[in-house]
Structure formats: structure tokens, C-alpha cells
Simulated assay, not measured.
Amino acid sequence: MARDAEGVLAGAIRYWPVSIVGEHIHKALLLGPVAVHPTRQGEGLGGHLISQSLGRAADLGWDRVMLVGDAPYYQRFGFTRLEGVVMPPPTNPDRVLAYDQGSGAWTGVQGNVLRIDAS
């Protein structure tokens, strides 16, 4: 979360652990939502949250991050279209994007995205 000097919530980002289940099982983080308070939009706060949180995810050992979103916006952070990974319907496959922390961790990953229960 991002708060301003007065402690008012300005923005938030959330990640969810998921599994991609195909021939093999791969773990990844699903990014979303990213939310910025309407009075703070246009200040670059959403981009800052994305950049900083991707770094934090790498620090925690997550080499795969995915999201469902607009490629033109997320490409500037290094996200690319993810082929062979299927989100539950009615997700548009063209909006499934991946970020691999520069490690090539998405190479060969295929299958269905399933949530990991927090039990």
C-alpha cells in the first residue's frame, strides 16, 4: 500500500499465488488489482507500485509474475503476452501477460492457472 504524508491511502497493489498445471506444476504470482485513488491518478503512483513490488517479488524468490491487462500499458514494465497459459473463462487470452524477472522462467510453461488455497 502507498499512503500520503497524512496517512491517507493513495494506492494499493495485490499479488496472489497461483499454480500453472499442465504436464508439470509451476508456481507464479498473479498481479492484480492495482488501484490508485482518483485524486492521485496521473502521478505515476501505479507505475511505482508495480516496479517496486516486482523488485520485492524477486527478493522473495518469485521468478514468474503474470497478470490480465492491457499490453500497451504493462509492456513498459517488461510484461509480454503469455502463450500456452490459460486463465479461467471469460478471460481474453490476448490480455494474459507475463514477467519473468529476466530469468526466462516462463520458457516451456503451459497449462491452466489455478489458485493456491491459503490453508
Rank of each mutant, 00 (worst) to 15 (best):
A10S: 11
Q75G: 06
A105H: 10
P38Q: 04
L67V: 13
P17E: 04
V34G: 06
V34F: 02
G46F: 05
W62T: 09
A71I: 13
P89M: 00
L97K: 03
G55Y: 10
H24W: 06
L31M: 15
A12M: 13
G7K: 08
L9N: 05
T39E: 04
A98Q: 12
G32E: 13
Q41H: 10
L9P: 07
P88L: 03
G55A: 15
P17F: 01
N112Y: 02
G7P: 08
V18E: 00
A98Y: 05
V68W: 02
L54T: 14
M66S: 03
R40Y: 14
L31T: 12
V21N: 00
I116M: 02
F77C: 04
R40E: 06
R81S: 13
S51R: 15
F77R: 01
Y99T: 14
R76D: 13
M66W: 03
R76K: 13
G46Y: 08
L49I: 14
P90L: 04
I25Y: 02
P90M: 02
A10D: 00
V36F: 02
P33R: 07
G46C: 07
P38I: 08
P38S: 05
E83R: 01
I50D: 01
Q110P: 09
L114P: 01
S19Y: 08
A71F: 05
Y99F: 15
P90Y: 05
L31K: 03
M1N: 09
P90F: 02
N112V: 15
A28N: 09
P33S: 06
R40F: 11
H24I: 12
V65H: 00
Q52S: 14
V65A: 00
F77N: 07
Q52M: 10
A58D: 09
L30C: 12
G108H: 03
P17M: 02
A58C: 01
L45W: 12
G84W: 08
D59C: 07
P17K: 08
F79Q: 12
V85W: 04
A98P: 04
Y73M: 10
G102T: 14
L49R: 11
A118C: 04
F77G: 05
L49D: 07
W106A: 04
D4E: 07
L97D: 08
I50P: 02
L114M: 07
P38V: 05
P90K: 00
S119F: 02
G32M: 13
Y15H: 13
G46E: 03
V8R: 14
I116K: 01
A12K: 02
V18T: 12
E6P: 08
L30M: 10
P93I: 06
D4V: 12
V65K: 00
G47N: 11
V85I: 05
R115W: 07
G32I: 14
G61R: 04
L31G: 11
G111P: 10
